[in-house]
């Protein structure tokens, strides 16, 4: 089988098929969509790389475990009646765990304690603010539009990771994008499909995790990382300004996607030319 076909099959078709099927089967459960998205991502990871040991030796191999963590947060958010304060406590803990898995080795190999503390604090704050804006954006836009935005954001992040010189991180982004894309398609047809509460933690944990990984271990620039994490802020602002307009959804989606695509375009424009196969 040609490599490109195998890559697309395992990295795109498989996660989309599994996430879409699971979402349809679990659509009556409040946590179903988040579990479906995680299943799609994890299945694709397993098909391509096999299941990593726990704890993984390589930081990138934490990603499927972070997907499971994100699904658990999704279950907690959708199946409990936690207040806003308690929800954010759970989110901060999840971000702290995810961030620790990604940056811990750099304290031994690259960073001084002070540099590491500054980078970790910066990434943590960015992650938290990114989650906040993502939640605000998806809560202010219609369900299909917000699902579409998550998929498009995933595509932008995957493309940016590809520019960072790691095809594996980009491929992981592609798996997540495919799973989110399948959920978007399900939102178009299944009217009773409640996806936001359980999928939001999956996107809010995995998308920044991919970016932090590419920024720390490959060559993704911090500026591109920041712009992509904060792209939903533009969409949220647009949705807020146009809150009573019937153009709100598509304008908010377009603004978010343009900001994400703009960050990728800027990264392409400033990257060194050349390549190899």
């Amino acid at each position: 089988m040609p490599i490109l076909i195998a890559t697309l099959g395992f990295g795109v078709a498989l996660p989309a098929l599994i996430a879409g099927s699971a979402a349809l089967l679990l659509r009556r459960f409040a946590s179903g969509a988040g579990i479906a998205c995680t299943l799609g991502f994890v299945a694709a990871w397993f098909a391509i790389y096999g299941w990593p040991a726990l704890p993984p030796r390589d930081v990138t191999q934490w990603l499927p475990f972070l997907a499971v963590l994100a699904a658990v947060v999704g279950i907690v958010e959708s199946a409990t009646r936690f207040g806003i304060g308690l929800r954010w406590v759970v989110r901060v803990v999840a971000i702290a765990i995810a961030l620790t898995t990604q940056v811990a080795p750099l304290f031994q190999t690259t960073w001084t304690p002070m540099t590491g503390a500054l980078w970790t604090a910066g990434f943590g704050l960015l992650w938290l603010v990114g989650w906040l804006f993502l939640e605000q954006l998806t809560s202010r836009t219609g369900r299909s539009w917000s699902a579409f935005v998550l998929m498009a954001l995933g595509a932008c992040i995957s493309a940016a990771c590809g520019l960072s010189s790691s095809a594996a991180i980009a491929q992981a982004g592609g798996m997540l994008t495919a799973a989110l894309g399948a959920l978007w398609i399900v939102t178009l047809f299944a009217r009773n499909f409640e996806w936001k509460t359980s999928v939001l933690p999956v996107a809010a944990i995995l998308l920044p995790a991919l970016l932090v990984n590419a920024c720390c271990y490959a060559e993704l620039r911090p500026m591109t990382t920041g712009l992509l994490v904060l792209a939903p802020a533009g969409g949220w602002l647009a949705a807020f300004v146009l809150r009573s307009s019937h153009h709100r959804d598509w304008v908010a989606a377009t603004v978010t996607i343009l900001l994400g695509a703009g960050a990728v375009a800027a990264a392409i424009a400033t990257s060194s030319p050349g390549g190899y196969e």
Partner: peptide
């Protein structure tokens, strides 16, 4: 990159 030597 992490694909091969993961030098960081």
């Amino acid at each position: 990159s992490p694909d091969f030597f993961n030098v960081k």
